[in-house]
Design a protein around this nucleic acid. Structure first.
Length: 424
RNA sequence: CGGGCCGUAGUAUACCGGUAGUACACCUGCUUUGGGAGCAGGUUGACCGAGUUCGAUUCUCGGCGGCCCGACCA
């Protein structure tokens, strides 16, 4: 699990909120995330993740990590610099074939590529570890920064030139094993999207498959900012990408065109069956029980971590700012202390902060010496699920004022009631 | 890569062929203190290069950068 501090004082946070978004930032996710201090734009399509943004990114990764581990994934990190020769083996070094390459040269001589995918390097690496049928299956995954020289970056953090992706690769004995794992991954992905709060809007989508299978599967989430158009059947919970929408597909899936609803979506995941072609190109073989040389059956499985974050930012927001789901929010509680010059209020806030920490509740404590209105506006913008106010009023009442960001619902709770509520 | 729009303080916006004004932010002081406070004072700016011109932030060209539409996303 990611190690991070549980809580922090807002006076310690170096980022600031902004009243206005940069004028040339049109996408909603970038506007909100920049205004609230989650990300910093370095250049078009390239964003830095600041303390709040990194916490959110890590929460998303944690959920994905748990689900990948649960189906047998082993986490690794591959390299960002990649060998030219490797990609020449599969004829994908050429800019004509792959048009998103960033390439550079070693001072010592030789050309290297900057990682836009890891299919080839990981297949090559596995030659070191796979030689017998006893070595398979292998499922590995990583969270890695991908670099893609897109002609046009757009949509804030949803389509950048540098972005974080979870990519998993499966290495199986043959089609049967592969299919079993492939289907397990579909279930795992659906659990991920459920836990991210977008399960109801996310559809497994039939898309063009490439050289080895008729279809690949995309995971598409209904979203206004989406770049894709898909056709969904809510009842059967299936969807078809427009690129494969034809009579043949419809017949195969047992539906007709009138059963389908056209929606705009964002692709949040994509999984592929490579068959044995890539292993053959790379020379990744194993010996079966009979001593025969057999190519490994490969698959790849991606989730765009930062794209999902952008999508969540857009989907969970209102006119005041971000409204993070509980398991994604950078903190669980935003503790607002009003009237810092009141010694009793301050010590009460300190005590609450201490007790919440002890109860393992992540808190952002707004201990700044600014006016109430500014604290409330910032809290709304930052979008932490529960706002807890400590002030002279709450001190007199003997209970804290607790307001849910999503609903605006306010209740008054004692420390023990609050902790009970949060740890229930 | 094709097409379009744009580039003025940290941010957002004005005006202007004669060296730039406002708001927020920031700094100082006083007042204020439950929904982005008030007053007073202060700091900060024309993307780069060339051309036209007596003079260019303003006009022209080029570069660089940003956003949008399309294409692309194997």
């Amino acid at each position: 699990m990611t190690i991070r501090t549980h809580s922090m004082k807002q006076s310690h946070l170096f980022t600031k909120t902004r009243r206005e978004a940069p004028k040339d930032e049109v996408s909603k996710n970038a506007q909100l995330l920049i205004r609230a201090g989650y990300v910093h734009k370095e250049m078009a399509g390239v964003y830095a993740y600041l303390p709040l943004g990194l916490r959110v990114q890590n929460k998303i990764k944690d959920i994905v990590r748990e689900e990948m581990d649960a189906i047998g994934g082993e986490e690794i990190i591959m390299t960002s610099l990649q060998r030219k020769e490797l990609w020449e083996k599969t004829n994908r070094w050429d800019d004509e074939t792959v048009d998103v390459w960033f390439k550079t040269e070693l001072k010592a001589g030789g050309e290297v590529g900057l990682a836009w995918s890891h299919e080839e390097p990981i297949g090559e690496m596995m030659k070191n570890y796979v030689s017998s049928f006893r070595d398979l299956p292998i499922f590995v995954y990583q969270f890695q920064t991908k670099l893609r020289n897109e002609l046009r970056a757009k949509s804030g953090i949803m389509r950048g030139r540098e972005f974080v992706m979870k990519d998993m690769y499966s290495f199986c004995l043959g089609e049967e094993d592969h299919t079993r794992f492939y289907n397990k991954t579909i279930d795992a992905y659906l659990r991920v999207y459920d836990r991210l709060g977008i399960g109801a809007d996310t559809f497994v989508t039939f898309a063009s498959g490439g050289a080895f299978t008729q279809f690949s599967h995309e995971f598409q989430t209904i979203a206004e900012t989406g770049e894709d158009v898909i056709y969904i059947n809510r009842e059967k919970k299936i969807a078809i990408n427009e690129e494969v929408l034809n009579e043949e597909t419809l017949t195969k899936l047992g539906i007709t065109r009138v059963d389908l609803e056209e929606v705009k979506t964002a692709e949040v995941g994509n999984i592929f069956n490579f068959g044995t072609q890539k292993a053959e190109d790379l020379g990744l073989f194993y010996k079966n029980e009979k001593g025969e040389q057999v190519p490994v059956w490969m698959g790849s499985y991606g989730i765009g971590i930062t794209r999902v974050m952008g999508l969540l930012a857009e989907k969970f927001a209102d006119e005041k700012g971000l409204v993070w789901p509980e398991h994604i929010a950078p903190f669980r509680v935003h503790l607002i202390e009003l009237g810092n010059d009141n010694v009793d209020v301050h010590s009460e806030a300190q005590e609450l902060y201490r007790e919440l920490n002890e109860a393992k509740v992540e808190v952002l404590w707004d201990d700044r010496d600014v006016r109430a209105g500014e604290k409330f506006a910032d809290a709304d913008l930052i979008g932490i699920p529960l706002r807890v106010v400590v002030s002279e009023k709450t001190l007199a009442a003997g209970k804290f004022e607790c307001t849910e960001r999503a609903t605006g619902h306010t209740s008054h709770k004692s420390i023990s009631e609050l902790i009970g509520h949060l740890t229930a």
